[in-house]
Amino acid sequence: MLHSFCFVPFRRGSDLFMMILSSFVSILYTGVNMSDSALKDLNVAQSGELEKNMDNSVKSCITKPVPIGNICLKKEENAPPTCPDAVTNGCEAGNVDVEYTDSENLTDLPDADASLSTLAARLDSKDWVMTCEALNNVRQLAIYHKEILQEHLESLVPLIVKSVKNPRSAVCKTALMTCADIFKAYGDLLVDSIDPLLVQLFLKASQDKRFVCEAAETALISMTSWITPSALLPKMQPYLKNKNPRIRAKASVCFSKSVPHFGVEGIKEYGLDKLVQIAATQLSDQLPESREAARKLALELQVFYEKFQASSSGEVDSTPDVQSDAESWEAFCQSKLSPLSAQAILRVTTTTKEGVAVGVTSTPKEGVTVGC
Rank of each mutant, 00 (worst) to 15 (best):
I194P: 08
K173G: 07
S193M: 15
L190S: 06
D192V: 09
I194V: 08
S163W: 01
A175L: 03
R168C: 11
L189G: 10
S169M: 15
A170N: 14
K173E: 15
A185H: 07
D188L: 10
G187M: 05
L189F: 10
A185Y: 03
D181L: 11
A185D: 04
I182V: 09
A170M: 09
K165D: 13
Y186D: 00
V171L: 01
I194Q: 08
M177R: 12
V171T: 05
T178C: 12
A180K: 07
K162Y: 15
D181N: 09
C179E: 06
N166T: 05
C179N: 04
A180D: 10
D192A: 10
I182C: 02
C172S: 12
S193W: 15
I182D: 02
T174D: 07
V164K: 06
L176E: 01
Y186V: 00
S193Y: 15
T178N: 06
L190V: 01
D188T: 01
L176Q: 00
S169F: 14
I182S: 00
N166V: 09
S169R: 15
K162L: 15
L189Q: 14
A185F: 07
K162F: 14
V171G: 00
L190E: 04
V171H: 03
C179M: 06
A170S: 12
N166L: 07
K162I: 10
K165I: 12
S169N: 14
V191I: 12
C179K: 03
L190I: 01
D181T: 06
D192T: 12
A170H: 09
K173M: 12
K173A: 13
A180R: 01
L190N: 01
S163I: 05
K173L: 13
A175D: 03
Y186P: 02
V171I: 10
P167L: 09
P167G: 02
G187S: 01
I182G: 03
A175V: 08
V191A: 04
N166F: 05
L190M: 08
P167C: 05
I182Q: 01
K184H: 11
S169I: 12
C172L: 11
S193F: 15
V171M: 04
K162C: 13
L176M: 01
D188G: 02
C179R: 05
L190R: 03
K165F: 09
K162G: 11
C172I: 11
M177W: 13
K165L: 14
K184E: 14
L176D: 02
D181K: 08
L189M: 11
T178V: 04
T174W: 04
V191L: 07
L190P: 00
A170F: 10
P167W: 02
C172K: 14
D192H: 12
I182Y: 00
C179G: 03
M177D: 10
A180G: 11
G187P: 05
A175K: 02
S169H: 15
K184D: 14
K162H: 13
P167V: 11
A170C: 13
V164I: 14
T174V: 08
V164R: 03
F183I: 06
P167E: 11
D188N: 10
A185W: 02
S169W: 15
K173Q: 14
T178Y: 05
C179P: 02
N166P: 00
F183W: 09
K184C: 10
L176A: 03
I194K: 01
R168M: 13
A175C: 04
V164C: 10
G187C: 07
A175P: 00
C179L: 07
K173C: 09
R168H: 14
T178Q: 04
I194N: 05
I194T: 06
T174Y: 03
